[in-house]
């Protein structure tokens, strides 16, 4: 089948500015959008720049906007797109460096700000820090985050104001706040109890729709708000 690939282009080193290039390609229905981008880069225009690593939905490096919604290029099949014209753009809210590559620094700065690591100052036991299956299942959903930034860059609050910590950082805070072995929940809640913390979330669910790992992002944000309000981790 014939597919028209309309790709956002930007090279800070030339005078063309931000524009779209259209490529007409032959594709199988089972091809992924990443395969189309690879076809362009390998056979048509080697200057096309995008991130990719594992190409199997695990590393999260190829998050882009496909026909207006955030998706991983390696997880979307041509046959699942409603149109034979595929519009490809970089994710929104982060500065474009070249073509589909954006500056991820603000995203990771927010991620680091919520202490996204295990904190427990008790002396380590001889074997392991025990946790029941029920306690582990409490934060199972938010362990699935691959830091692709699809959720944060689908959030209008983040588009408007880059200071907003963003849904991804809150998801990663949730993962440790609800971990029964962790001891820094209060610090994380204090960080998120801020003008640019959880209160910029207006529950529009774009993040939940965008997440390629099907994490219930808005629900996790709501649970963090509830923990701040009640002082209980249920």
């Amino acid at each position: 089948m014939e597919v028209k690939l309309k790709v956002f282009r930007y090279n800070p080193e030339d005078d063309e500015g931000k524009h779209f290039d259209t490529f007409t390609l032959e594709a199988e229905p089972t091809d992924r959008v990443l395969d189309l981008l690879e076809q362009v880069k390998n056979y048509v225009d080697g200057t096309l720049t995008f991130r990719r690593s594992c190409a199997h939905g695990v590393c999260g490096s190829d998050a882009i906007r496909i026909n207006g919604v955030n998706r991983l290029a390696c997880k979307v099949l041509v046959q699942d797109l409603k149109s034979k014209t595929v519009k490809i753009e970089p994710i929104l809210g982060l500065e474009v460096e070249k073509d589909l590559v954006v500056d991820m620094e603000p995203f990771f700065r927010h991620y680091k700000s919520v202490l996204p690591y295990f904190v427990n100052d008790d002396p380590p036991p001889m074997k392991e820090r025990l946790q029941s299956p029920e306690e582990r299942s409490r934060f199972d959903d938010t362990t699935k985050c691959i830091l692709c930034a699809s959720c944060t860059t689908s959030c209008p609050s983040f588009w408007i104001n880059e200071e907003y910590v963003g849904p991804s950082a809150i998801v990663n805070a949730h993962r440790f706040i609800y971990d029964s072995r962790d001891q820094a929940a209060a610090e994380r809640l204090e960080i998120l109890n801020d003008q640019f913390g959880v209160y910029r979330c207006h529950t529009i669910f774009n993040c939940t729709d965008a997440c390629p790992r099907e994490i219930e992002v808005t629900k996790a944000v709501g649970e963090v708000k509830k923990a701040i309000a009640t002082g209980r981790l249920e």
Partner: peptide, 18 residues
């Protein structure tokens, strides 16, 4: 599974108005 208590963050304008 029992719920755990956690010290509540301090009051601020955002929290109060929320």
């Amino acid at each position: 599974m029992q719920s755990r208590k956690v010290p509540q963050p301090g009051w601020n304008l955002e929290y109060t108005m929320w």
